[in-house]
Design a protein around this nucleic acid. Structure first.
Lengths: 219, 219, 219, 219
DNA sequence: TATGAATGAGCCTTCATTCAT
DNA sequence: AATGAATGAAGGCTCATTCAT
């Protein structure tokens, strides 16, 4: 390894090494808090090389983004392309996604959020703030479990799962809203309710989806 | 207003004005890229006042976080607390959430992500990267619409909506995964499929949920 | 006390209270590290009062200096003025000096050095540096004790005392040198040797001077 | 020299240049009033280099302290180590000390006190305050000269010398007192009298110590 | 007499970036 | 292909000092 990481390495190889190092550092520190110095050191080269190959800190970050997004997309495509029915492809795609996230934690952090660049004090507060919102939903869902006749086993874990999915969906839908300014909050709410209401109950009832069976209510 | 924003304003008022300004700047630039100078200027005061009242940049950010998270939670609680059934409360809560996000865009951005603290070039790239992932799902869903017998009106808008919700849910579930390392990607996939599969079809078929009716397929 | 420290206090009294507080803070923090805020707070008044009465931080410091130097001089004069012979007056003066220093520690620190305004890290290093010099002399003196026939009881305490006095004398003589640029280091050395050599032996031999007896060798 | 002070100088050399400059500025302004900007400018480089090589203002100051204290100690040791008898070594050591102080004025100021970091107005006042104390002693000593039978030539210069040494000794002994809280001011006075009383007369009588002869009054 | 509100100025520190070898 | 030396620019924070009441 000290052979390929030191001296006289061809450009394409060096570039990948630099990006490898950058992903680690960006994931650990976040974009702003990451310093080119640290990246260069981790890559085992001097700072000017980074600039020679990747132009700037921005260029470096973008290179990371592109490479990892490409890999994630490729993994998704490879998985989702094989099956025939929509549900099987969706399933395979989600599976690939969760697998990627599990196996390339750092890459995902870079793609996902740079919240880690905040100081511990702030990070804690952000977590706290997000959790406050999340808890409202979790409480609601937990109550739902109690109300639910079928849910004889009130698994907190399930309530948590549903709450996360729900909050995440709502959270991302705020981006969708920005591109659909005409849609009222109420209509969005109705749509989202329509999408998750039945399924929520399934999860809370402890059901685990099996291809071609669960939820095939209308067919 | 230029009366209350200028000269000799009592402390509690000034504090709120500073926080108001900070939210705008933090939302626009992100935490790191935001400068206390800019916040002070927008608040119509000098920098030392910011430090006198809020202690530090971190303290200022935390104050923003707390105030806005508190408001969002309060809005959610106020809305969700009134109805009787779970579905009505959930609906009211989501409605309050989407309304808050609509009316307090900047606050939501601060609570949501600080990705905007990246330069335009990077922000574009981040959007692009996230969209690449999103598109895979959107395509899948779009194909699903075509396949779907009921979906006589292939609304791209609906496919987009579903894709956003799905990706957002998956995205946030990666946080849930971190606290449940024993859950395999596959099981998470199955759970999520179970939760959204039926509802997705509803949305894609153009249905709009009505309290107590839509989605009550299994009853 | 809360009566004289609060509200509607005549100017002369307030001034003294401010100076009292300032001495404490200047002694504790040093001139630069001392903040007018802290002084005002300790004096139990608001900052503008300090400026109204003492004009500036510098004016405040000078007022402290003058008052305490005056008190020290007065104490010295009062003590030294009474006796008849030089040695008795010198003794009384030194006694008054050491008594003042003991009883008004803070005042003395203000008059003496502001080294305390350095950070702990630096203060430690300064102490270390000064000690390194001091130790050279102390070692020398300690050896002297061993050599000395009379010094059957090698009191480290005595060696330390002599070393301190010697280093202090040399230290201050550097000020004298500045006003006598023609005096060579060698001549100064000889003068100092002449002044302390005999007396050093007395102290190292454990003698304690008694008025009119010790050291009256040449009379 | 403009060659070695400008552009592309190897690190060890630059470090010494920075320390050289820092000593000048710290001596002139004192620690707090000295600005890293001024030091960098005097060193002929930009500020970041100072931080790159010396870490911080504190680190820079400590580096100055260590280097100069080391040099002074080395000079003392080199000089004092050669002779055989205590008095000769003491003489050589003091000589080395006064020589160092003469030749490295700035270094000595840094090691000595940072009183100069006060503004001219304050520095003057400090000098004045210290002089007030010094004058009491000088007056006493001057009177002593007049009284003294042997002192046929009342040299003010000699009185001043003695007064400086005496005040310096007393001054530094206040440090000694702090570590010996049980010693009463009176006992300290007696010890100091015992140490200087005889020698003072020698100096006032215009004697100049010669190795092995002067002051050997009692033998 | 007394103070809460407010600021101009400056300092330490860091970092992305480049030059000269 | 590779790097040690060097810097412009900017940001967080503090403080002595003053205004308006």
């Amino acid at each position: 390894m000290s052979d390929t990481r030191r001296r006289r390495v061809p450009r394409p190889v060096r570039e990948q090494q630099i990006i490898d190092a950058a992903i680690q550092v960006f994931a650990k520190r976040g974009y702003h808090a990451a310093s080119v110095d640290e990246i260069a050191e981790l890559a085992g080269i001097s700072k000017p090389m980074v600039y020679l190959y990747l132009d700037s800190k921005e260029g470096l970050f973008i290179a990371c983004l592109r490479r990892e997004a490409g890999r994630l997309v490729a993994a998704f495509q490879a998985a989702a392309g094989d099956a025939h029915s929509l549900e099987l492809r969706l399933r395979a795609g989600l599976d690939a996604f969760f697998t990627f996230v599990t196996e390339h934690r750092a890459s995902w952090v870079v793609l996902h959020r740079q919240a880690s660049e905040l100081s511990p004090a702030i990070a804690a507060e952000v977590t706290q703030a997000r959790r406050a919102v999340m808890e409202q939903v979790t409480d609601l869902v937990r109550v739902g479990i109690a109300e639910s006749a079928a849910a004889t086993r009130p698994h907190d874990e399930d309530a948590d799962f549903v709450a996360h999915a729900l909050v995440g969906a709502a959270d991302t839908l705020t981006d969708w809203m920005e591109r659909h300014p005409d849609e009222s909050p109420e209509r969005i709410t109705l749509r989202l309710m329509n999408m998750v209401w039945v399924g929520m109950r399934n999860v809370l009832d402890g059901e685990v989806w099996t291809p071609g069976e669960a939820g095939r209510t209308g067919e």
